Amino acid sequence: MANLAIYVTVRSYVQRDREECHDRMMKNYFIERPRFPTHDFRRQFRMRRELFESILNAVVNHDHYFARRLDAAGQQGLSPHQKLIYVFRKLANRCSADSTDEYCRLAESIAIENLKRFCKAIEGIYGATYLHKPNRKDLKRLLRKVDKRGFPGMIGSLNCMHWEWKNYPTGWAGQFKGYHNKPIIVLKAVVSYDTWIWHAFFDAYGSNNDINVLWSSPLFDNVVNGWAPEFRYKVNCNRYELGYYLTDGIFLKSFSHPDSAKNKLFS
């Protein structure tokens, strides 16, 4: 019988001094007179400290995973501030899972689990408020705001973003080709004036362009089925009864210098 070699990987324990790390974070940003001013906090985490603390309280109340508790060795575990600072640093700077270990004291496996739990908590807390199409009350608010800015009847800004797909399956590479022969995935989104992304749709690029992605999305289902709410407004002395989206020239090419009555009307 051939010799059977068994390899056992022993994981070394790393003393991360999490209590000391928590105290340093509080002195840096969260005490009455922190070491770093408010504009440094906003630059690091892309938000105000008040918003950070509001999200922190909501997440801790929703999922006790984020509350501070004793670990198996009887030591104080990670604080809510450590867990959320890691999340916002990763989301704001697109860094790797273990890149903030020196500051936040999260091992890579814990950091990944922490991010997943945070995303589920945010969806559970804010999903009913933000992950829905505009109702009549929302539409009235949007239309009232854009009308003051000179765009009567506009219900959102529509655009597509092309994302390079880094870890794509090799067998799918041919049908996901983008402009530069790299696999691309398209994200189409509708955003309101207050950055409320109330519609998002992913599609592969490949044979699709922005118009095909728009066509395959459910954005205009209500219009096609006759369920879309009607608005009455005037633009250039013409009456309209359906809202519209503000887009760039990718979706609809216009004439930069219209030289006829027909082209001027189209533009």
Rank of each mutant, 00 (worst) to 15 (best):
R149Q: 09
L131Y: 06
I6R: 07
V191R: 04
R49N: 08
R35W: 12
F220S: 02
P34R: 02
P218N: 08
M161N: 06
R43Q: 10
D63R: 10
T38R: 10
N114G: 00
H62C: 10
A92C: 10
N222P: 08
K253D: 08
V213I: 05
R11W: 08
A73L: 08
V59Y: 07
N222R: 13
S79T: 15
F251I: 03
Y205E: 11
V146L: 07
L78G: 02
N28L: 05
K116R: 09
Y13V: 14
K145G: 02
T100A: 03
Q175C: 10
L56P: 00
N263W: 09
Y168I: 13
A67D: 01
D221N: 13
A111R: 00
L84M: 02
C237K: 15
V87D: 06
L106C: 07
G206D: 05
E53P: 00
S157Q: 02
G206N: 09
R239W: 13
C95N: 15
R149M: 15
E102C: 04
R43V: 11
N61S: 15
D71R: 00
K140Q: 12
G127S: 06
H199S: 03
Q75P: 07
R43G: 08
V8P: 02
N167Q: 11
C104N: 08
D40W: 14
R48P: 04
V8T: 11
F30G: 03
E50G: 04
R43D: 12
H64E: 15
Q44M: 10
Y130K: 07
V8K: 11
M47V: 03
E32F: 05
A72C: 11
A128I: 09
V14R: 14
Y205Q: 09
D259W: 06
H81N: 11
K145S: 10
I122N: 05
L139D: 01
